[in-house]
Write a protein that binds this DNA or RNA. Sequence first.
DNA 1: TTAGGGTTAG
Length: 526
Amino acid sequence: MGRLSVAASKALSLLHHPSLSQSLTAFTAVSHVKQVHAHLIVTGDAQQNIFTTTRLLACAALCGSPDLSYAEAIFRHTPAPTFFMHNTLLRAYSRSPADSPDGIALYVHLLRAGFFPDKFTFPFVLHSCGLLENLFLGRQLHGHVVKFGLCHDVFVVNNVMGMYSSCAELGSARQLFDESLDIANVVSWTILVTGCSNSGDIDTARAYFDQMPSKNSVSWNAMITGYGRVGRISDARELFNAMPERDSASWGALISGYTENKLFMEALVLIREMVNRGEVPNEAAIVSAVSACAHLRALEEGDWLYELVKEIGFDGNVILGTALLDMFGKCGNIRKALMVFNLMPAKNIYSWNSMIAGLAFNGYGREVLSLFWKMQLLGTTPNSITFISLLSGCSHSGLVDEGLHLFNMMTQKYRIKPQLEHYGSVVDLLGRAGLIEEAVHFVEGLPVGPHSGLWGALAGACRIHGEVELGREVAERLVELEPQHSGRYALLSNILASARRWDGVEMVRKLLKDRKVLKTPGSSIL
DNA sequence: TTAGGGTTAG
């Protein structure tokens, strides 16, 4: 066999280190695990040594980019997997919702094999159960905890509380907390704070927060996040200012809070301040700041953040990548958007939707379509948002037949129920192309009542294409639909003026006055 | 071994 790579050699030398975490530092990729494993098989060292097998399993399951099917293969090929190996695999399963069902299955398997779950088993399996939000199962697990005599272990109890909290069963979490006050620690308190805040009871969360015998930065950050979620951003800021020691998550929590509450400038100011102070923002903070740039169309600030990401090292994170390409697309730098998109090792529906929207927004109708086919070829199913971007892309590029075809595809092939936005896009598509009659027909045939957005798109199209009579009809319907909306009168008046129907213009002016319609700032004439 | 983070339309 070939020689081991430098990284794999290093990994081999650390494989038998007494501490698993030391071993794990050597295995940054599963390929190292595989190389070492192959080496051990060839040299005959992998055969009998259960410690080596266990360590390989742990490294495959828990390294930076784990490969669970490889870990499972090691597990299956071990004649009598030990209890520790079960716990290791359970730990790996508990890390993602997609693997949670396997975690539950392995727990059952463990019981059937005659093992007794211990204080390590329960935190993992309870966490999987919480991710599944399966309260029925969770209550059974709680019963097992009692049966196996582990209800005095603070790790186990905290995870039972966490499970109840994830299952939106906060009453049970609080009850357990009250029963376990003698062993409760700062984690138990923080779970309650988070649980209350997630269930919308921010004041109870604050009450627990104030009662805590001791706090750490996680507790403060949880409370800051909670205030951000409910829009109490000044309370969040107050805590941020008051906390004794901030870590990068504290900054991140407030930055995210600002972005969530549409305070985009504040988010950008804060991340600037953070970096100026020499703090390194975490990925969540950068994601929120990048999203703020997207909303503000702040390309310069966005470029700066991209440079920062490259400096820190882009690890292929799908959420960060999506935020970046979305920002570049919205700011009009489609080249950079495509570059980030192509650099991303993994893409999800958000990534595809953002890239499609970016192309559509910048008028690349044909490219939108080819990206859409590529997306389907690679096995990602489009959703309702995908079609909003697709239709708007077609509309802006005058691709009428393609747009109508996509609309049919959406309802027939993908069984997606159209929303008003989809209807609006079709009206826009037909209207821009001058197919006014077809657009009117389309609107009249819709299973929704009269809607101002749809009729507005129609009237706009009539004006552009000089369809005075139809435009007047539509604008009149609009005025009656929204009698307090000054823009509707403006539209009607414009259409009449373009046909030199001055008597009509005068009538609209009088109507506006009689009905005491207030002018919306920025609306054009009258 | 447990607690705190984030992306897409309009």
